[in-house]
Design a binder for these strands. Structure first.
Length: 292
DNA sequence: CTCCAGGGATCAG
DNA sequence: CTGATCCATGGA
């Protein structure tokens, strides 16, 4: 990874297959603020985001990425893994398109997506919150929970609380954050993590099916949420979350619009995309939200 | 007013 | 296994 260090900023060029806006706004993370930029300038985008107890201001201008106020050590240890910058997405996309030519346009429309490697605990709670909810509302709840129990890590930006910071927080407290019926689920998740019954490190070592099964022991975690957690925070890139959008796009692309059940589609996707399921899923999801 | 949101728990058949 | 209903909350 080649980059330069200037005025406390990390400047990154020559990084292919990476678009900041596509990566941050494709529905895999909720803990960010997009900076309003004058005019609709597609070539520039800027965000502040929180991850792993840190805040980050980052911008893309053409093929130049700027990580503001970032030390080389943090860039190497935090942000390269977080943005998955060490991975060869050109190879991944070629592989997907070669085996699934019907996905060519869909992949190329969002060719700059990278799958983030997020914190397990934050991803677990965030995707419990996501169930039967809308992205703006999810973002609001995540920001509110962070502002209440996390630490200040930037202007109007707070880290997502660690498990220990939520010790003693009960369902009534979560309800005040507009989590609705998910409040009890969040309590169960927090208590299982605090007790050690659920551990991100242990889950990483499990096979996909075993990992999903274990995650589904948490109240409010079903197949879709479990697969999001595995894909976005446990490094399981063969995971394949199926929500209403994935259902729609798969039915449209492969079944002429005919209805299929989610378990049916899950088996279909596993057979079709195999270990690249997670990547295919994210290109399909972004396409579905834009075009369907 | 109704309908629905990156679903899941629960219960019926 | 499959399907129906309910779950809080907010926006269209």
């Amino acid at each position: 990874m080649k980059y330069t260090h200037r005025d406390n900023n990390i400047i990154l060029t020559d990084i292919p297959d990476f678009n900041l806006a596509q990566t941050i706004e494709c529905g895999q993370c909720f803990h960010f603020i997009r900076k309003d930029l004058p005019e609709e300038d597609d070539s520039r985008s800027e965000y502040t985001l929180a991850a792993f107890g840190r805040g980050l201001r980052v911008a893309q201008d053409g093929d130049t990425f700027t990580f503001y106020d970032t030390k080389a050590e943090d860039f190497e240890k935090l942000w390269i893994p977080y943005f998955d910058l060490d991975r060869d997405y050109g190879m991944i996309k070629d592989f997907i398109i070669e085996r699934n030519p019907e996905l060519r346009e869909i992949v190329e429309k969002n060719a700059g997506i990278r799958l983030l490697n997020q914190d397990f605990f934050e991803t677990l709670l965030s995707f419990i919150i996501s169930q039967n909810n809308r992205i703006p509302q999810i973002k609001k709840v995540v920001a509110d929970i962070s502002a209440t129990w996390g630490r200040k890590v930037g202007d109007d930006l707070y880290s997502f609380p660690e498990p220990g910071e939520l010790e003693g927080v009960c369902a009534a407290d979560f309800k005040e954050k507009k989590t609705g019926f998910r409040a009890a689920y969040l309590c169960d998740a927090v208590s299982k993590v605090l007790s050690g019954e659920i551990s991100g490190e242990e889950l990483k070592r499990l096979e996909l099916d075993e990992c999903e099964k274990k995650l589904c022991e948490i109240k409010g975690v079903g197949p879709k949420v479990a697969n999001c957690i595995m894909l976005f925070s446990l490094g399981k890139r063969e995971a394949f979350p199926i929500d209403v959008w994935m259902k729609r796009v798969l039915e449209q692309v492969y079944f002429g619009g005919k209805e299929k059940s989610k378990p049916e589609l899950a088996a279909f996707a596993k057979d079709k995309y195999g270990e690249y399921g997670g990547y295919a899923q994210q290109y399909l999801f972004a396409y579905a939200r834009e075009e369907l």
